[in-house]
Simulated assay, not measured.
Amino acid sequence: MMEVGSWLWKISYMLHVISNAAFFGISLVFTFGNSNLLNETTLKKYLKISFMFVMTTGATGILLLSILTMSGMDDLTSNPIGQSALFMILGYVVVLFVISLALIYKGGEERIYKKLFGIMFFSYLFVYIVRVYLTT
């Protein structure tokens, strides 16, 4: 049974990191991209792709957190790894809220999209800086 859990952990962690990196890269490009990149058709397409990465991140994050708590880590506030997991959940909720706003926004103003992608980029950046601080 431990082999299945280990295998599931590794696959979930790989998917989690890849989807996080892909979303972080897309949000970086659209935060600092020029106006040629920010036309509405390109934005809408990458916004849907970004949402898919965010949902993959959430699903694998839930799986990773459930595997982590199975090994006896019930109180997430008691150690730095649990605290960083809680901080990641907070950052994920912020990003999920902002990307939902971006998906339902029907205006064509590229500066609004740029600000929304900026909020998502900087919140993820802040979460990962805090995560590195807590776990090293």
Rank of each mutant, 00 (worst) to 15 (best):
S100H: 09
Q83V: 10
Y13F: 15
V94A: 12
S12V: 09
L64E: 05
N34W: 11
S27I: 02
I67Y: 08
T57D: 10
G72I: 06
L47C: 09
I18E: 07
G5L: 15
L86A: 09
V94S: 08
N79M: 11
L64D: 05
L116Y: 02
I81G: 00
F24I: 00
Y13M: 15
N34A: 12
Y105T: 01
T41I: 14
F126R: 07
R131A: 15
G5K: 13
S19M: 09
I119K: 04
T77L: 13
V130D: 08
A22F: 07
G118L: 05
F121A: 03
K106C: 02
L37I: 10
V93P: 09
A59S: 12
F32W: 11
G33I: 03
F24N: 00
S100Q: 09
S78P: 04
L47G: 02
K114I: 00
G107K: 01
M88E: 06
E3W: 11
F32Y: 13
G5M: 14
N20W: 07
L63T: 09
T77G: 13
L116D: 00
M88L: 12
N79Q: 11
V98G: 03
I18N: 07
K106T: 04
R131N: 14
I89G: 09
L43A: 07
V127S: 11
I104N: 07
F122G: 04
F24P: 01
G25M: 11
V54W: 02
T135D: 14
K115H: 05
P80W: 09
G61N: 06
V127M: 13
S6F: 14
G5Q: 14
L38W: 08
L103V: 04
K106A: 08
T57A: 13
Y124S: 07
F24Y: 07
G25T: 08
I11R: 13
T41R: 15
E109I: 00
T69R: 13
Y113K: 01
N79V: 08
V95M: 12
G72D: 10
I11F: 15
G61T: 04
Y133T: 13
G108D: 03
A102F: 02
F97N: 10
K115P: 00
H16M: 12
F126P: 06
L8V: 14
T31C: 11
A59K: 03
S35L: 12
S123R: 03
N39F: 13
G25Q: 05
L125A: 12
T56Q: 10
K114T: 00
K10Q: 15
M2C: 12
G82K: 05
I89H: 03
S66Q: 10
G118R: 02
G108K: 03
F24R: 01
G33F: 05
L90H: 08
Y13D: 12
N20D: 08
T135I: 15
I104S: 10
V132E: 14
K10E: 14
T56V: 15
I112C: 04
K48E: 15
M55N: 12
G107V: 00
A102G: 05
A21W: 06
F122R: 04
T41Y: 14
G108E: 05
F122A: 05
A102H: 01
T57P: 02
V4N: 14
I89D: 03
G107H: 00
M88I: 08
L63N: 09
Y13A: 13
I99L: 13
K48S: 15
Y46C: 10
S35Y: 12
K114M: 05
I67L: 14
S27R: 00
T31K: 04
